[in-house]
Nucleic acid binder design. Sequence first.
DNA 1: GTCTATAGTCTGATAGAC
DNA 2: GTCTATCAGACTATAGAC
Lengths: 217, 217
Amino acid sequence: MNAVEEKNLSRIQREKRGKIQKAALEVFSEYGLRSATLDKIATACGLTKPNILYYYSSKDQIYFEVLNGLLDEWVAPLHEISKEGKPIDELLGYMKAKLKISKQKPKESKLFANEILHGAPLMQNILATSLRQTLDEKVAVIDHWVSEGKLANVNGYHLFFSIWAMTQHYADFDVQVKAILDKNEDELFQEAEEYLTNLLLRMLSLPSNQNHSIKRS
Amino acid sequence: MNAVEEKNLSRIQREKRGKIQKAALEVFSEYGLRSATLDKIATACGLTKPNILYYYSSKDQIYFEVLNGLLDEWVAPLHEISKEGKPIDELLGYMKAKLKISKQKPKESKLFANEILHGAPLMQNILATSLRQTLDEKVAVIDHWVSEGKLANVNGYHLFFSIWAMTQHYADFDVQVKAILDKNEDELFQEAEEYLTNLLLRMLSLPSNQNHSIKRS
DNA sequence: GTCTATAGTCTGATAGAC
DNA sequence: GTCTATCAGACTATAGAC
């Protein structure tokens, strides 16, 4: 459903669709596309199964719309990285934005993780075109910063991979994290932010004028 | 099935069970527990559905045994970290071992990722006891190294989380990585190893006797 | 031990009353 | 628009022949 079609819906239709999408996010993120059932979604939003299928033509379509509806929001922090800003501040800001999303939107994170883990049948195209293009641009910015001596020499692509991996880990694998560290969420994410800030600072700061005594393997 | 029961099986039984487990790993890692079907496993190992259920009492049991059978192997690299070794070498070795596993056993990695992503119904107990205990010990080693001034001050738990996240990312989210970087596997993992080696060196090396000009937020 | 046939269950989707 | 009832297909698991 595109923006124009969306506009032509009545108020009640938009409300119901919103309810369904919200419930669907809960259920899909917990169970995945296949193990999620229309019954579970129906219970979660207080509608009946046929009623859901009055608003959406199939289960797959609900899944597709939920995923698609979150995509822009998901990639948004990447666009915020500005060539004009201070390199390390920009990248620290990006990490913090991603970590905040992991804390506040763990379900969305799990939904994407599950999709990619199973081969991204619905998103592969977007990954290889839109996301890739955006990332290419941002890596070019990083390369530029490196060439100007404003940032330690670093592989931009792998830098983004590692920021994604480390920040999303706290949402996607929260069960494991919490099984090992029994802290409350606030403490946990506070620690994570301190750790990751320190890590990026050490990773990205120029060695200034001193020797770093870095051993090469 | 424990080790004693395993021994009492005939040769043909062990062979068939092995075949089934191998096929099950393929199917479960690709589809997850629920979307995997006995038919897919049957096709993958060239047996019939009832024949599989002659060797295993249920689909769930196959899944459980596959997961359980891989557990020891999965945690093994952690045990290799030795208090007696050189701190940075030990931790670099651990990262490299994990990265190698991501390259060579992506299916196993995805199987675990999927299990934890969906709440680790079969593993939560092990995570909170056995894995946690092992990790506590290794974090104590890291704290010891830090207190002796052999390692930069670092939160041991988050260090392990980040090593897991970054190394497993290349297996679990390979679709995304490959959509962005179209390199062959060897190049990709070579790059990843260089990047992660550099990252850990900067993260863990002592600043020696020079100022590091690290900004605190 | 292995197979064919099938029972029994779950679930996505539809028909049709209101 | 919404509901009850129900169909059709997929899937796990079992029965029983060989």
